[in-house]
Amino acid sequence: MGYLLGVLVLLPLWGCSSSSQVEPPKVTQPQPTSLVLATPLQVSYQSELALARLGQMLGEMELTPEQRAELFYERAVVFDRVGLRSLARLDFNRALREKPDFAEAYNFIGVYLVQQQNYDEAYEAFDSALELAPDYDYAYLNRGIALYYGNRPSLSISDMKRFYEAQPEDPYRALWFYLAERKLDESTAMSHLRDHLNKHGDDAWNWDLVRLYTGQINATQLMGSVVKGVKDNRELAERLCETYFYLGKFELFKGNRKEAISYFKLALANNVYDFIEHRYALLELELMARKSPPPGSQTQSEQSGKPAAL
C-alpha cells in the first residue's frame, strides 16, 4: 500500500480497507493499449460520522489541552483523508497550539508545506518532528521527499537510506531510495535498486513496480500484476494510484513528457487523497507545468510518433 504518512489514528475508522459493502471489480488482463480504471473513491459514511462526532466532542465536552490536541489531530486526519486539506491543516495547527510537542502534527504540516513548495519551512517542521521523536520513520521519509523536491539530493539520500534500512523488504522504500540516489548518480542508483530486488523481492504485486524500473517487465505486464487478487474497488483504486504515479516517474525519466502527465493525472483520478503518490502526483504536474516547452516545440513522444497514455 502507499504510505499514509505514518499516522496512528485513535478512532476505529482509519485504514486501507473499506468497511462499506462493495462488489469486487470485474477486471481483466490489460491489453498493450488498454488502461485499468477504478471508480474514484467517495467520502464514506464512516468519515462523515467521525467528523460530526469529533466536532461535537470539541464543541461540547470539557477537555484538557492534551485531549483537545488529540481530537483536533484526529479530525485533521479525517479531513485529510477526504481531501479537505485546508481544514486539515487548520486543525493540525490547532493541535500544535494545544500540544507544542506533537510530533505527528509537525509531520503533517511539513507534508503540506512540501506540496506548496515551501521547502525551508517544511524542513523545519520535519526537524521538529524528529527532535521530538528521533525514531519516527515516516518523518525521515517525508523529510527525504522534501529534500528530493528541494534539490538537496545528498541530504535526501541520507534520509531515504535510513528509511529503507528500517524495512528493506518494502518495495516502496527501495523505490524512494532509488529516486533520491538517481539525482546524483543514475548508474549507482540502478545498481543498488537491482541489489535490493535480488535480496528482498518476492511475488507480491508491488515488487513488480521495482521490476519495471530494472527492466525485467514492461508496463503491460505490470498492469496485469496490479489487478491480480484485487478484492474490491478501494483496493483497486489504491493500487492504481500507486502504479500510475510510479509509471509517471518512469516515463518522465525516459523523456516521455506527455505520457508522464497522463499517468500523474490517472494517479489523481482515484481520489486516494491520503497516499503520498496522490500528493506528489499533483506536485509533479505543477512542476512540469512550470517547465512547459515553448509553443511550437515537440516533445520526445511527438517526435517519435508514439501516442501518449491518454
Rank of each mutant, 00 (worst) to 15 (best):
K26C: 11
L212C: 10
V227R: 09
G201F: 04
A76N: 07
K265G: 04
K99Q: 09
Q303C: 09
S34Y: 11
S292T: 13
L285D: 01
N142H: 15
Y136T: 00
E74M: 06
E124M: 11
A174F: 02
M223R: 12
P294D: 12
K228V: 13
G215Y: 05
S47M: 13
F275M: 07
P30I: 01
A260W: 00
L35D: 09
L4M: 11
V7I: 15
E124Q: 15
Y149N: 02
D120V: 10
A146D: 03
G305M: 01
E98D: 14
V114Y: 08
L197R: 07
E286K: 13
R173Y: 04
E121P: 05
Q221F: 01
D135N: 15
F102C: 00
P134G: 01
V9G: 05
L212V: 08
M1Q: 09
D159G: 00
E259K: 14
R194V: 15
Q116Y: 12
R194W: 08
Q56N: 11
S191F: 08
K231Q: 13
S292Q: 13
A146I: 01
Y244E: 00
V226F: 14
A103P: 01
S18H: 06
R239P: 02
Q167C: 08
P65F: 02
L54T: 00
D80Y: 14
F72S: 10
V227F: 05
M288N: 00
I276L: 15
L54R: 02
H196M: 14
T188C: 10
Y119G: 04
N198F: 05
E60D: 15
G59F: 06
P24R: 11
A309H: 10
D208L: 01
L212G: 03
Y149Q: 02
T214I: 07
E235K: 03
L266F: 01
F102W: 06
R94I: 01
L209V: 02
S18T: 14
R152C: 03
R94G: 06
L282A: 14
G83F: 04
S17Y: 08
L4H: 06
G83N: 03
L184M: 10
E124D: 10
V43P: 09
C16K: 11
F126Q: 05
T64I: 00
Y112F: 14
R85P: 07
Y273V: 00
P153G: 00
Y112E: 11
A309R: 14
H200I: 05
A180L: 01
D101L: 04
Q167L: 13
Q31H: 14
